[in-house]
């Protein structure tokens, strides 16, 4: 199983060390809407969870993702 940071770095093809909770589409070149959707899909598969639509539409950055995964008991 990959870590959240590894998934994000993989999808965005960026260095895993550069990923932190503040990383977001706003401050990351290449993070477009397609990549956001891919991220949801990859994270669901990796952590074996299924998010509801209203849970994912409000996500703004990596920190939000982590909080959501915690809430759903993924780690």
């Amino acid at each position: 199983m990959k870590t959240l940071e590894e998934i994000i770095a993989g999808v965005l093809t960026i260095d895993v060390k550069s990923v932190n909770d503040q990383t977001s589409p706003e401050n990351t070149p290449g993070w477009d809407s397609f990549n956001s959707i891919l991220l949801v899909s990859e994270v669901e598969k990796n952590f074996n969870v299924k998010f509801e639509l209203d849970e994912v539409v409000g996500l703004k950055n990596v920190g939000d993702f982590r909080a959501l995964l915690k809430k759903r008991g993924a780690f």
């Binding site: 809407s33 959707i37 949801v40 899909s41 998010f51 509801e52 639509l53 994912v56």
Partner: peptide, 11 residues
């Protein structure tokens, strides 16, 4: 839900 997120009729 991917339909709503980006018009992905197929996830």
């Amino acid at each position: 839900k991917y339909k709503e997120m980006g018009d992905f009729s197929v996830a």
